[in-house]
Design a protein around this nucleic acid. Structure first.
Lengths: 220, 220
DNA sequence: GTCTATATAGGGATAGAC
DNA sequence: GTCTATCCCTATATAGAC
């Protein structure tokens, strides 16, 4: 049934989603401030007027994309509920996070500017950071309790905050540092490695080797 | 002589600098993308036409401001040449860096967008990051050699890269995390503490206490 | 050096025919 | 739902008088 609904959609829905797809692709490629509604309409193959039939404003498009982004992030932040999380869970969470951010990298590329201009997105993004902070803290605390991470409770807040700062602005840093301003998605692996590097001093040799194996297996 | 020249400047020079001052203030307050040349002329108390007598384009203004920024950063990156650098030197370097970035925070707020649109600034900023990387590596290496920092040579590159990423995007992170989008300069101390937190695991208790004293004395 | 007036371009967004 | 035509506004930048 669901698949039938998915293949036989009304034209309106299809156009709406084509607009969103084109917007996301162009925002990611050129940066949201550098993409006009005319560009989007052009790329979608529709008229500018039609675009405004489906969306109230450019901001409306941004907000719809943000909603999908938020859902992806929240999925990535889920932790196992029936057992204590381990290093693989941390690796997976980082992987899903960098993947989600990569798909919506336009948001992180011009994060401050976008949040300055859009109050609703600003509030919701702040809540995402709160949830990320809670999730990361509980994950690290669990690793401490199972003896994997050798950190004191007072080490955790700065560690979590640095990790979140790094994840949030990795897109920007990687773009600037690599000199690749073409909008292509970058490899999440380096970002993941950098977050792990924050934790490395608190891991013993076994755990560090564990991460090395995960990183090596990552490409395959 | 110098003071005479400074007080009796030709009107052209004074206007030019008033434009630069107003631009910097408004860029920092509202973000460079949100400040037009008309706004700048208004704030300077001159006509838009006059602004274009003194500067070829808005980009020209950005580039002039960038030149001052670059000079400030390079000053901050200087290390003592006659002796091995110590923890105070690291603290001072971080202080000067965060101060310089705070004065030109508009650049870091919209870094990716500005660098995407301006090729010359992009190239020069990449070189600044290179110099920062070299400076930070040699500083940390000296601390290792004098027994202050207990890290292996292979720990340094990720440490340096994470530190640079953190310093570069601290303005953005702090803005987003604190929810203060009003453009005010933020306290450098928290950013400095976060960079120190990267190093903390490699410092012994004595060195960590040393930093705590420096941080406590900072406000005074 | 500074102004007023204006050229030119492009942005977001709407009206009304089909 | 979709188009064409257009409005309105603001942006960068220039011309020419003073």
């Amino acid at each position: 049934m669901q698949s039938l609904r998915a293949t036989r959609r009304p034209a309106a829905t299809r156009t709406r989603e084509r607009i969103l797809d084109a917007s996301l692709a162009m925002f990611n490629a050129f940066g949201e401030p550098n993409v006009s509604t005319n560009h989007i309409a052009d790329e979608t193959g529709i008229s500018p007027g039609n675009l405004y039939y489906h969306f109230r404003s450019k901001d409306d498009i941004v907000e719809q994309l943000f909603a999908s982004y938020e859902a992806r992030i929240d999925e990535a932040l889920l932790l196992p509920t029936t057992r204590a999380p381990n290093l693989e869970d941390l690796w997976l969470q980082l992987h899903l996070l960098f993947e989600a951010i990569g798909s919506y990298r336009f948001l992180h590329r011009d994060l401050v500017d976008i949040l300055t201009r859009n109050r609703r997105v600003r509030i919701r993004f702040a809540r995402i950071l709160d949830r990320a902070s809670i999730s990361a803290t509980s994950l690290l605390r669990a690793l401490v309790e199972t003896g994997v991470l050798h950190a004191r409770e007072e080490d955790l807040p700065p560690l979590v905050e640095n990790a979140i700062a790094l994840v949030t602005f990795w897109v920007g840093y990687d773009t600037v540092r690599s000199g690749h301003f073409n909008g292509h998605a970058n490899d999440p692996l380096l970002g993941m490695r950098r977050v792990i590097a924050l934790l490395a001093p608190f891991l013993d040799a076994t755990a560090r080797a564990h991460f090395e194996r995960l990183a090596a297996a990552y490409g395959a």
